[in-house]
Design a binder for these strands. Structure first.
Lengths: 205, 205
DNA sequence: GTCTATACTGTGATAGAC
DNA sequence: GTCTATCACAGTATAGAC
């Protein structure tokens, strides 16, 4: 075909613009809060006119949707990497997983608000964008099960516990470590509740 | 004085309008989300033109500020009432306090987002509006102390725990009881961690 | 097809008449 | 105190240049 090389170059350029819009959108959200994101600001920083963004995204919510999916995809990659080398001690393993989520969440408050809270008035993530988020929760659930936590309520309890620490850290001590320092204690408290062993299981009983 | 009666009537009317604006603002926030509050909608429902609201509040954020203070004041009254008749068992007492906060918070999600999360882009509560919120936290801290919880970190831990359950309930099961049902278990878990007695203390040891 | 120019709607806010 | 008029700006949609 004659047109193929051109289309490849155009496709590349289109994808690059797509990524640049998202990258700049994260910058703006970081400065003005996730709900303070404006298409004008994004367009200006890229050197575009605001309406031109509509060539790449159908609406502002479509940008939020892509950001939502991107954030959970990034976290999925990080936790997958961490999970390849977990400590054999179940408590330590759970603590590493909790710290991984906590540090990712508190690193960028606007990102966490988009991922885990319903803060943007008209925005609801699409089913497609929800994919990575559901996958992350499913994998966390199966990892908890392999650690010895069987009841579904136990999963709800620990997600609420870790999420609560994250929210308090972001809302009341941003940039500090007041609640981050409580994480090991919180995990031990939870591990006692669900009866997690304190030492790694023996090879042969 | 001649003008005094007139001024009293005017002051009454002014205060009534003030209260009506706040009441309608809560209605709008309940329907459209706390960040979806618009001065137009409030004005229309009252039968005013939008600019007239500025005779009563300096800005939209001033309305948020008054709502913030009003919400914490209302909760302070409720928890004060509950605290007059707490069960003698420390665990049961703590559970009642936790349930009081949980039920108040989950009854109106927009109110909770205003009270405990930073969801409105440009809004930060004023020092004056923070007063009742600080008072509530102080009283909770002293009540925990009288129950036997001394370390400040223990207070941070339980606020994160209860707040985390509230957030999960609102975000993932609004109107349901999936995380509300976990509250007794969560409080017991925390009570074990801080060494709260399981039964009421004896009169004479 | 992609980007630009322009206009329309809605929102917060201010100034001035009554 | 309330209203009319108006401004500044965000999000959206359409038409047209290249």
């Amino acid at each position: 075909m004659v047109g193929t090389p051109n289309r490849d170059r155009q496709a590349e350029r289109r994808e690059a613009t797509h990524a640049e819009i998202l990258s700049v959108a994260w910058d703006v959200a970081e400065e003005h809060g996730i709900a303070g994101l404006t298409l004008r600001e994004v367009a200006v920083r890229i050197g575009m006119k605001p309406p031109s963004l509509y060539s790449h995204f159908d609406s502002k919510n479509a940008i939020y949707d892509a950001m939502f999916e991107q954030a959970w995809t990034q976290y999925a990659a990080i936790v997958d990497d961490v999970a390849t080398d977990l400590p054999p001690n179940p408590r330590q393993a759970l603590r590493v997983l909790a710290e991984t989520f906590f540090d990712f969440a508190t690193a960028h408050a606007p990102r966490h608000q988009l991922m885990s809270q319903r803060v943007v008035p008209g925005f609801e993530p699409s089913a497609s964008a929800y994919g990575p988020a559901v996958q992350v929760l499913d994998q966390f659930q199966s990892r908890l099960r392999s650690l010895g936590v069987d009841d579904p309520a136990g999963v709800d309890l620990v997600t609420a516990l870790i999420g609560g620490l994250v929210n308090q850290q972001i809302a009341n001590d941003p940039g500090g470590s007041r609640w981050r320092d409580l994480l090991p204690r919180a995990i031990n408290m939870y591990a006692d509740e669900v009866g997690l062993a304190r030492r790694e299981p023996r090879r042969s009983p």
